[in-house]
Amino acid sequence: MTATVQPGSGAPSACPSPAARVRSGAARVAAPVGVALVAVTGAALLGAVNPHQPGHYPTCPFLWLTGLYCPGCGSLRAVHDLVHLDLAGAWSMNPFLVLVLPALLAAWVAWLRRAATGAARRRVLPAWTIWTILALVLAYWVARNVPALAPWLAP
């Protein structure tokens, strides 16, 4: 994603003092670990309480207001299916989520490594890749609501 840490690549001038690294390392690792705990808790809840059954979770507000699907519709059901190792089911609910999940995991690993080593973010994605992501998201948003494509893209 945005930054892939290259261990050992830090310029000598970019390294904080050893004392500062030790002091900040334990505290800064708390954030990625905390996020992971929240994510695992959420996934466990979704695995236990089935979002395929009505009434367990709120309806997507965008769908409720407009009657149209948004890029996130089906995400809860997709996570539930993934917790139960049903990749095909998850894909049928929200393929975008399934595609983006590995990237999110990689970003989390990079974040954890950065936090643990105290290394600075060094790599910047070219802006056009993010604009491409935006265009894909918007196209996906529209395509989900096209009846001809609904069998593949709609939840």
Partner: peptide, 23 residues
Amino acid sequence: PPPQNYLVWAILSTVLCCLPLGV
């Protein structure tokens, strides 16, 4: 270092929040 761009959070809110905020 380059500033944090919060792209991961943007994608998370796109996938999970169902609102134009993510976009």
